[in-house]
Simulated scan of single mutants.
Amino acid sequence: MLNPLKGAIQALFFVAIWLVAQRFVTVYHLPVPAAVVGLFFVVALLLAGVVPAHHIAAGANWLLGDMLLFFIPPLMAIIQFRSLLASHGLQILAAIVLGCLTVMVGTGLIVERTLRWERSRLHGITARRGAKS
């Protein structure tokens, strides 16, 4: 039987790696999600032998086991509404793809505008401080 505390501590290792990766992405302005960078960090630690696989296996298994909670409801919907998918599957797929693309593009544009506004605001504050000196 798996010790729940051991699994939780190992899961916290992955959270810590993600936090380090998030900081790394922020400092170096990388156009890659912190989760991807964190994945590379974990792989590097495993390959270098710094962290043996058995020291993080319980936490990884626990996190992967809980990921199923996110995938089961859509699979149940597919099974339950098979006839709807047969008649309108391409339309539903197109709506999902277009919806995802719209959300991603919209989010990217809003984040970009917000960052530009933030930079211009900070630049204005810095310029005013320099003029006062």
Results as ranks from 00 to 15, higher is better:
49 G>Y: 13
47 L>Y: 08
86 A>K: 14
34 A>C: 02
72 I>K: 00
102 T>R: 14
10 Q>H: 10
42 V>R: 03
42 V>C: 07
9 I>F: 08
33 P>T: 08
4 P>L: 00
110 I>M: 06
81 F>Q: 03
50 V>L: 10
22 Q>Y: 15
14 F>E: 05
45 L>C: 00
90 L>I: 15
108 G>A: 15
92 I>T: 12
42 V>F: 10
101 L>P: 08
98 L>S: 04
35 A>S: 12
11 A>I: 09
61 N>H: 15
31 P>T: 11
6 K>Y: 04
120 S>C: 07
131 A>W: 13
127 A>K: 03
44 A>Q: 07
71 F>M: 00
24 F>H: 02
119 R>P: 06
85 L>R: 05
70 F>L: 03
98 L>T: 14
40 F>K: 05
15 V>E: 00
19 L>F: 05
63 L>G: 01
80 Q>I: 04
58 A>R: 12
33 P>A: 12
23 R>S: 01
106 G>W: 14
16 A>F: 07
124 G>I: 03
13 F>M: 03
125 I>A: 07
105 V>M: 13
16 A>Q: 08
103 V>T: 13
53 A>I: 15
1 M>H: 11
111 V>T: 14
15 V>D: 04
29 H>E: 12
93 L>P: 04
123 H>Q: 08
74 P>E: 00
122 L>T: 01
81 F>W: 04
56 I>M: 04
99 G>N: 11
114 T>K: 09
94 A>K: 13
107 T>W: 13
73 P>E: 04
26 T>G: 00
80 Q>W: 04
81 F>A: 11
27 V>S: 01
34 A>E: 00
68 L>V: 03
51 V>H: 00
123 H>F: 10
107 T>K: 02
120 S>K: 13
102 T>N: 14
23 R>C: 07
85 L>K: 10
133 S>V: 13
53 A>S: 14
28 Y>C: 03
106 G>T: 07
13 F>T: 04
128 R>I: 09
133 S>G: 05
105 V>D: 01
65 G>R: 06
92 I>R: 11
37 V>I: 06
83 S>R: 01
66 D>W: 12
122 L>E: 01
115 L>I: 13
112 E>K: 15
22 Q>H: 14
10 Q>T: 00
124 G>W: 09
129 R>N: 12
125 I>N: 01
5 L>W: 05
100 C>Q: 15
85 L>I: 08
78 I>S: 05
92 I>M: 14
33 P>Y: 11
42 V>I: 00
26 T>C: 06
22 Q>A: 15
57 A>R: 00
37 V>Q: 04
108 G>Q: 10
124 G>Q: 05
75 L>C: 11
28 Y>V: 01
72 I>T: 00
99 G>D: 10
1 M>T: 07
1 M>Q: 12
29 H>R: 14
29 H>T: 02
5 L>P: 05
110 I>C: 11
51 V>I: 12
32 V>M: 02
2 L>I: 13
75 L>A: 08
111 V>F: 15
45 L>W: 11
91 Q>R: 15
95 A>M: 14
103 V>M: 14
66 D>Q: 08
7 G>P: 04
7 G>V: 05
118 E>C: 14
13 F>D: 09
65 G>N: 03
46 L>F: 12
50 V>S: 05
28 Y>N: 01
26 T>W: 01
92 I>Q: 11
105 V>S: 08
33 P>W: 09
54 H>C: 09
119 R>H: 06
52 P>K: 13
128 R>E: 11
37 V>E: 02
73 P>I: 04
99 G>K: 09
62 W>F: 11
